Simulated scan of single mutants.
Amino acid sequence: METPPPAPENASTGQLIGQLSEQLTRLVRDEMRLAQAEVSTKAKKFGLGAGLFGSAGLFGFLGLQVLVAAAVLALALVLPGWLAAVIVAVVLFVVAAVLALIGKKDVQQAAPPVPTEAIASVKTDVATVKESASR
């Protein structure tokens, strides 16, 4: 059975440094666990979201194929079939280029996934320790 540490006002400098070391070690371990849990939770949500997004993309692609075929068939009523297909293809390539440029910009602006809560907590802990040490 461990004896409880003496009250800070009754402890020696050595005992206080020992307590500080132990508390800092525990604090760092707890912060690491918090960061690991936060990153793990974010990764799970990211994986699920990416899977759902991929499925939505597949079904959207299939729907787009049907619409493209309908557009070609509609234009083929007034133009030769090959010309209708070329016109629809050019329009699709223009739309693809615009979407690619917008997507590239959004990806460049995205921040890397970091454990923001854990980082903020560690900064608060460091500030508290610095403030306590300066007293």
Rank of each mutant, 00 (worst) to 15 (best):
A111P: 01
A76F: 08
A110M: 13
L79P: 02
L101Q: 09
V95Y: 14
Q65A: 09
L77M: 08
G54I: 01
Q108P: 01
F61E: 13
F59S: 06
F46M: 08
V78D: 05
F61M: 15
V78L: 11
A111Y: 01
I87D: 00
V78W: 04
A89L: 11
F61P: 02
A74M: 13
V91D: 00
G81S: 13
A100N: 06
F53L: 09
P112C: 00
F61Y: 15
A69E: 10
V78R: 10
V94I: 15
P80S: 07
Q108W: 02
G81Q: 14
V78C: 06
G54H: 01
W82L: 09
V86L: 15
V98N: 10
I87Q: 00
V72F: 07
Q109R: 09
K44D: 10
A71W: 00
G47H: 10
L73K: 02
L83T: 05
V78K: 08
L62M: 15
F53Q: 10
L99P: 01
V66C: 04
A74D: 12
V88I: 07
A76I: 05
L48I: 14
A50D: 04
F59E: 03
P80L: 02
A76R: 06
A43W: 00
G81E: 13
V95W: 11
G54V: 05
F46K: 12
K45E: 14
A76H: 04
L101E: 11
F93Q: 01
V90R: 05
L101P: 01
L99Y: 05
A43V: 07
V88L: 03
A50F: 06
V91N: 00
L75M: 08
G81C: 04
A70F: 14
L67S: 13
I87L: 13
L58I: 15
A56P: 00
K104Y: 14
G103K: 09
L58D: 02
A70P: 06
D106H: 09
L58P: 01
K105F: 12
G81N: 11
A110K: 12
V68P: 00
V95T: 11
V86Y: 04
V66K: 13
V88F: 00
G51A: 12
P80F: 03
